[in-house]
Computed example of a mutant assay.
Amino acid sequence: MNIIELEDVWKIYRIGEVEIPALRGLSLKVKPGEFVAVMGPSGSGKSTAMNMIGCLDIPTKGRVLLEGQDIAALSEIELARIRGKKIGFVFQSHNLYPTLTTLENVQLPMRIHEFSEVQIWDRSEELLQLVGLSDRANHYPSQLSGGQSQRVAIARALSTYPLLLLADEPTGNLDTEAGGEVLDIFAQLNAQGVTVVMITHDEKIAERANKIVRMIDGALAS
């Protein structure tokens, strides 16, 4: 079964009397274990596609299926719970809580979703080791570099054992070296079976994926 499937998805925004289609019949399947890069220039619809893949929005027409379930049939509370547990988000700007330590940032989603204390501590320590930040567990975001902050964000995104890791321009604010380290972690995770979807406009970054989807004008270019 596909983890996520978009079937002839349209997203139309209305501004007064004007209709602006951001997606025009987009169809896309993400299978377990894939590393997919969604590419396109500014205005191509890739950010709207990310919102659909991440179950952050529902289509105007068409269907978005998460593990075969139509997300339009779910309540907002159910959708929020699914996003929290089944989809791990990594954004360009890290979005770490400045008043929480590295360890506390990683543990937060597990506390929200009522993991046991043993699970929380075991999983957070495992993930900090995975991203090479065990020695930064008690540091605050202001004490971390951009690359380190993004690695914390990756660890946090993985904390609830999500089906899918969804990354939006994850190296956009990083220098070449730090960006390469982040992409290495995605490749390592994917080799371990984690399904990754990455939104990017950069051809070199997209080449790290094993499947590239190109978008233009709200639809697939190839």
Rank of each mutant, 00 (worst) to 15 (best):
P98V: 05
P98N: 08
P98I: 01
P98R: 01
T99E: 15
L100P: 06
L100N: 05
T101C: 08
T101F: 04
T102F: 08
T102S: 14
L103A: 12
L103S: 06
L103M: 13
E104W: 02
E104I: 03
E104N: 00
V106S: 09
V106Y: 05
Q107K: 14
Q107G: 00
Q107D: 00
L108F: 15
P109A: 04
P109L: 00
P109Y: 05
P109T: 07
P109N: 01
M110H: 03
M110D: 06
M110R: 06
R111P: 00
R111A: 13
I112Q: 00
H113K: 10
F115K: 15
S116C: 11
S116E: 09
S116P: 02
E117H: 10
E117I: 04
E117M: 12
E117P: 03
E117S: 13
V118R: 13
V118F: 11
V118Y: 10
Q119L: 09
I120K: 08
I120M: 13
I120A: 07
I120G: 02
W121I: 10
W121N: 15
W121V: 11
W121R: 15
R123K: 15
R123P: 05
R123Q: 10
R123D: 06
R123E: 14
S124E: 08
E125C: 10
E125A: 13
E126L: 08
E126C: 01
E126R: 13
L127P: 07
L127Y: 07
L127A: 04
L128W: 01
L128T: 04
L128N: 10
Q129I: 07
Q129A: 14
L130K: 14
L130V: 10
V131D: 09
V131C: 01
V131N: 06
G132W: 01
G132E: 12
L133M: 08
L133R: 00
L133E: 05
S134M: 13
S134I: 12
S134A: 13
S134R: 11
D135Y: 12
A137C: 06
A137I: 11
N138A: 12
N138R: 15
H139M: 08
H139S: 15
Y140D: 10
Y140N: 07
Y140C: 09
Y140E: 06
Y140A: 05
Y140P: 04
P141L: 10
S142Y: 14
Q143Y: 04
L144F: 05
L144W: 07
L144D: 07
L144A: 12
S145R: 03
S145T: 02
G147T: 04
G147E: 10
Q148N: 10
Q148K: 07
Q148I: 05
S149C: 14
Q150I: 01
Q150G: 03
Q150A: 04
R151S: 03
R151N: 09
V152P: 05
V152A: 02
V152R: 00
A153F: 09
A153T: 12
A153R: 11
I154N: 02
I154Q: 07
A155Y: 00
A155R: 00
A155W: 01
A155M: 06
R156D: 11
